[in-house]
Amino acid sequence: MTQNINDDQTQADWKINTKQIEPITEAIIAGKYSWACVLILRFLGYNPLHYMPYRTYNRLTKNN
């Protein structure tokens, strides 16, 4: 079974703009990988609480 995905479809799915990439890269450079994941999930329109425990999310938002 094969799936045909053209470039237009994959580019349309990308929702993160350049202003949003900046804090993600800053978090990665600072070694805050969990915070970068939270930012990516938020910018893509997902609820980070669906992917991590509440206590972890709460700690990350307080620290950042």
Rank of each mutant, 00 (worst) to 15 (best):
M1N: 13
M1P: 13
T2E: 02
T2L: 13
T2I: 15
Q3I: 10
N4F: 14
N4L: 14
I5Y: 15
I5E: 15
I5L: 15
I5S: 13
I5W: 15
N6D: 15
N6C: 14
N6H: 14
N6R: 14
D7F: 13
D8K: 13
D8Y: 13
Q9G: 07
T10M: 08
T10Q: 05
T10V: 14
T10R: 08
Q11T: 00
Q11R: 15
A12T: 13
D13G: 11
D13H: 15
D13T: 15
D13V: 15
W14K: 07
W14Y: 07
W14R: 07
K15L: 12
I16M: 04
I16F: 07
T18G: 01
T18L: 04
T18P: 00
K19I: 07
Q20L: 02
Q20T: 02
Q20E: 13
I21V: 07
I21W: 07
I21P: 06
E22N: 05
E22A: 09
E22H: 10
E22D: 10
P23H: 08
P23W: 14
I24L: 09
T25R: 14
T25P: 09
T25D: 14
E26R: 11
E26A: 10
E26D: 14
E26I: 08
A27Y: 04
I28Y: 06
I28K: 05
I28P: 06
I29L: 08
I29Y: 11
A30V: 08
A30L: 12
A30D: 12
A30I: 09
A30E: 13
G31K: 06
G31L: 05
K32N: 11
K32H: 12
K32S: 08
Y33D: 12
S34T: 02
S34D: 14
S34P: 06
S34Y: 04
W35K: 11
W35S: 10
A36H: 08
A36W: 03
A36M: 07
C37W: 02
V38Y: 02
V38D: 00
L39Y: 02
I40V: 03
I40A: 08
L41E: 07
L41Q: 11
L41H: 13
L41Y: 12
R42N: 09
R42V: 04
R42W: 00
R42Q: 09
F43I: 02
F43G: 09
F43L: 08
F43N: 07
L44F: 14
G45E: 11
G45P: 12
G45Q: 05
Y46S: 11
Y46K: 15
N47Y: 05
H50M: 05
H50E: 08
Y51W: 09
Y51E: 01
Y51H: 04
Y51I: 00
M52S: 02
M52H: 00
M52D: 01
P53H: 05
P53L: 10
P53G: 10
Y54C: 04
Y54E: 06
Y54R: 03
R55M: 12
T56I: 03
T56G: 08
Y57A: 03
Y57E: 00
N58E: 06
N58C: 03
N58A: 08
R59M: 04
L60V: 03
L60D: 01
T61D: 02
K62W: 00
K62G: 03
K62A: 03
N63A: 12
N63P: 06
N63G: 08
N63R: 14
N63W: 11
N63H: 12
N64V: 01
N64G: 06
N64C: 05
